[in-house]
Amino acid sequence: MASEGHLVSMTEAIGRIQSIQSMLQQLSQGVLPQASSAGTTASTGTRAPSGGAASSTDSASFAQALSSAVGGSGALSGVITGMATGAMTGDAVAADAKKYVGVPYVWGGTNPAVGMDCSGFVQRVFKDLGVDLPRVVSDQMRQGTPVASLAQAKPGDLLVSFGGEHISIYLGNGKAIDAPVPGQTIQIRDAWEQQSNLTAIRRIVPAGGS
């Protein structure tokens, strides 16, 4: 079971991501969130030079600085980088999902401070990254695009099993993460789903570089 300190840190991280997201949005539109080389600030609405749009290099540099400022964790770094480039990937989904390891399974749960069930966990991970998914497996399994087989699955794909009774997030290399059953916690384990009991594999965001 996750410790109280872990949950507090996780909640703080989510809050930081949300505040950072708005700053990155300004950056992508060419509004500098800090003083420019000319000494002006974001509060003046100053636009970046050379056509009024910040370059992708500037975005990446700003993302790296933000990641360092919030502690530089792997999961948070992946989220920030995805926001800065404007392309959320399956790798970022997998990284974000891992921060919930140890949160208890609670049927119908959607709050990581209390506990989550399988679909509540999946919904929360994608919500962290700015992607809205329905609440229940039967609706989640209709989102995105189909993947033909487990052999073709990539990190961030959703594995739906037993006719829509369960859902997990594929991490790659034969591993998946899920909220299994009452009495257990969110955990990384071998992807036990096989072609015989898989109902669907869905890709919600691009696979990324894995």
Rank of each mutant, 00 (worst) to 15 (best):
residue 126 F to E: 06
residue 24 L to R: 05
residue 112 P to G: 00
residue 58 D to F: 12
residue 117 D to Y: 02
residue 119 S to M: 01
residue 6 H to Y: 00
residue 113 A to G: 09
residue 180 P to N: 00
residue 55 S to G: 08
residue 160 V to P: 01
residue 83 M to R: 03
residue 194 Q to C: 10
residue 149 S to Y: 04
residue 204 I to H: 02
residue 146 P to F: 07
residue 105 Y to S: 04
residue 83 M to S: 07
residue 69 A to R: 07
residue 188 I to D: 08
residue 44 T to I: 10
residue 208 G to Y: 03
residue 110 T to Q: 07
residue 118 C to M: 02
residue 193 E to S: 14
residue 91 D to N: 08
residue 89 T to E: 07
residue 114 V to W: 07
residue 156 G to F: 00
residue 82 G to W: 00
residue 209 G to V: 11
residue 76 L to M: 15
residue 7 L to N: 05
residue 57 T to N: 13
residue 174 G to Q: 02
residue 77 S to Q: 13
residue 90 G to V: 03
residue 85 T to V: 05
residue 84 A to E: 01
residue 35 A to H: 14
residue 106 V to C: 04
residue 70 V to I: 15
residue 149 S to Q: 03
residue 198 L to N: 06
residue 177 I to M: 07
residue 209 G to P: 03
residue 182 P to G: 04
residue 108 G to V: 02
residue 110 T to N: 10
residue 101 V to F: 02
residue 193 E to K: 10
residue 89 T to V: 01
residue 153 A to T: 00
residue 183 G to I: 01
residue 7 L to R: 04
residue 196 S to T: 11
residue 123 Q to N: 07
residue 56 S to V: 14
residue 5 G to Q: 15
residue 79 V to L: 09
residue 67 S to H: 01
residue 95 A to H: 03
residue 184 Q to A: 15
residue 113 A to P: 00
residue 61 S to Y: 13
residue 60 A to N: 05
residue 71 G to K: 00
residue 49 P to M: 08
residue 50 S to Q: 15
residue 36 S to I: 02
residue 68 S to H: 14
residue 23 M to C: 12
residue 39 G to N: 08
residue 128 D to S: 10
residue 181 V to G: 07
residue 199 T to C: 09
residue 39 G to W: 06
residue 132 D to E: 14
residue 20 I to G: 01
residue 9 S to N: 14
residue 119 S to P: 05
residue 27 L to T: 08
residue 92 A to C: 01
residue 209 G to R: 12
residue 178 D to M: 10
residue 30 G to H: 05
residue 151 A to H: 06
residue 31 V to R: 13
residue 75 A to G: 04
residue 96 D to F: 05
residue 210 S to D: 12
residue 127 K to M: 14
residue 170 Y to C: 03
residue 200 A to T: 06
residue 157 D to A: 05
residue 118 C to P: 03
residue 193 E to N: 11
residue 54 A to G: 08
residue 181 V to T: 14
residue 61 S to V: 14
residue 44 T to M: 13
residue 12 E to A: 12
residue 207 A to I: 09
residue 161 S to Y: 05
residue 86 G to W: 02
residue 164 G to Q: 03
residue 165 E to Q: 15
residue 173 N to G: 08
residue 54 A to M: 12
residue 17 I to G: 10
residue 42 A to M: 11
residue 159 L to D: 09
residue 201 I to S: 01
residue 70 V to H: 10
residue 67 S to W: 00
residue 62 F to G: 05
residue 167 I to S: 01
residue 182 P to Y: 09
residue 189 R to C: 10
residue 97 A to P: 00
residue 44 T to Q: 12
residue 36 S to W: 07
residue 32 L to W: 13
residue 125 V to F: 08
residue 81 T to W: 05
residue 8 V to M: 12
residue 153 A to S: 08
residue 138 S to A: 14
residue 6 H to N: 08
residue 130 G to D: 06
residue 130 G to E: 00
residue 116 M to T: 03
residue 122 V to A: 02
residue 110 T to L: 09
residue 40 T to R: 15
residue 135 R to L: 07
residue 33 P to N: 08
residue 94 A to P: 04
residue 176 A to N: 11
residue 142 R to T: 13
residue 91 D to W: 00
residue 183 G to W: 03
residue 23 M to N: 13
residue 105 Y to C: 05
residue 39 G to M: 04
residue 134 P to V: 05
residue 75 A to H: 08
residue 90 G to S: 02
residue 185 T to M: 11
residue 10 M to D: 06
residue 61 S to E: 12
residue 105 Y to Q: 07
residue 92 A to R: 06
residue 7 L to I: 10
residue 183 G to M: 06
